[in-house]
Amino acid sequence: MPTKIEKDAVTGTMTTGHEWDGIRELNTPLPKWWLWVFYATIVWSIGYYVLYPTLPGLNGILGWSQRAELADGMAAERERIRPMLDRIRATPVTEIRNQPDLAAFAVAGGRAAFADNCAPCHGAGGAGAKGGFPSLADDEWIWGGDPDAIQRTVAFGIRSAHPETRQSQMPRFGTDGLLTPAQISDTAEFVLSLSGRAAVPVAVERGRAIYAEQCAACHGAEGRGMAELGAPSLADQIWLYGGDKAAIEHSIQVARGGVMPAWTDRLDEATIRMLTLYVHQLGGGR
């Protein structure tokens, strides 16, 4: 509290009357207009209470909300990109790749759609995951890796409920008793030999005959696979369900194959095309 307002002997300036442990404050008056500016900011703040949501229950006469602002922004953005999406709908995917601006837009849009819809199984960046979720960044394609094939897979899925789905079923050679465990073991040994990894030459020779009879129709005589039937190559270094002998035997035993939903009913045509181009440029597109 102000105690004694007096004149400071050294400077000749009046003190404010405040004193702290013997230290007194000289009075250097603040300009009145400065004080009024401060009051003006208080008055200004009242405007916010009137116009904008402030305290709970006070929503402001402008009806402004962050949620509405976001919705407006999203709507404006959708409107902004509409011409590009129209162009994508009107252009075949193979043709989009020849138009740099459209291709860049499609890949960017596909990246976002991929993260939302595909990454849970195929991993960020199409890295793939153990247990039958193939990598989309490598150069092996079970159902084909050219843009049209990718687009068809995305649109209709694999073993999905859609009538145009990609469909194939490998026989369950073990479960259904088509081959004996010994024959399965020999076949697996032969499959290993296709990628140069066989250990028992006699078993490979025994397996060769079984493979030619049972497997070659789909996987090909040299195990190169057949994309039309979704039969993967057995001659390369990429193994969806594991490439050691036990894993191969298990695959022959129970006939493994994944399921992918059809996206044509969930995503619009433009998004599917953008997804196609994004997946195609991940690294392995043909």
């Binding site: 990598s135 960044a137 190559s233 990429i238």
Partner: peptide, 9 residues
Amino acid sequence: RSPLWVVLA
């Protein structure tokens, strides 16, 4: 960053 590497066919 994802995938960190890819093994090709």
